[in-house]
């Protein structure tokens, strides 16, 4: 299979992580506030884990609907998928997310004997920093580093890749054809 880690080589000093203060919700999270609670592919528990994971990576991603974004795309044919994963490995996109979410839970249980959503912010941050540094203890498949890369992209998509996200960053959108919905 292709070298998935190829897109992600930056391993940064762990000291950077210790000072990170996580805000619970970002001011740009209105990008697409999603109330929906039922999912098409993911279970509610899986969606909550993914949402919490992405929310630590990009503040506001949970509220912006990252789990719904992933879930909706997984429910569609590859042709209609809006996920970045389709560029890199479209062989089993649902399996990739399912196994990645299971990996988060396995690692969380091993380290803290708790589901990821119930961890403290600093415990969640520690786990993500270790995904960046390829230092997961029990989660190996899919490669946690690559899962971080993909889920980070999904989180960036829903928070910063929309018209509202551009406004938040002070970037003029300048559309030729305005997206019918953020995603």
């Amino acid at each position: 299979m292709m070298g998935r880690r190829r897109f992600f080589t930056g391993i940064i000093p762990t000291t950077v992580w210790t000072s990170i203060a996580i805000r619970s919700l970002s001011c740009n999270a209105e990008a697409k506030t999603v109330e929906q609670t039922s999912f098409l592919i993911l279970s509610t528990t899986e969606a909550e884990t993914l949402s919490a994971w992405c929310n630590v990576i990009v503040t506001g991603a949970g509220n912006a609907g990252v789990a719904q974004f992933v879930d909706q795309s997984l429910s569609r044919a590859q042709l209609a998928s809006l996920l970045l994963l389709r560029y890199l490995d479209a062989s089993d996109m649902t399996g990739f997310y399912r196994n990645g979410i299971a990996g988060i839970e396995k690692e969380s249980a091993h380290r803290f004997a708790q589901p990821f959503v119930q961890l403290t912010k600093s415990q969640q941050t520690e786990m993500i920093a270790d995904a960046v540094a390829s230092k997961m203890q029990v989660w190996s498949d899919p490669d946690p580093n690559f899962f971080y890369f993909i889920s980070r992209s999904d989180a960036v998509d829903v928070v910063y890749g929309t018209e509202a996200g551009f406004v938040d960053l002070g970037i003029p959108y300048l559309a030729h054809i305005t997206p019918p919905q953020p995603w």
Partner: peptide, 26 residues
């Protein structure tokens, strides 16, 4: 470069997350 996707500014620094990413992107 727009913020997202493979050639976007966010993925140019894939190691950043949380507040560090937010600060960098701004």
């Amino acid at each position: 470069a727009k913020p997202n996707d493979l050639l976007g500014t966010a993925l140019a620094k894939p190691d950043l997350f949380g507040e560090a990413l937010n600060k960098y992107l701004r």
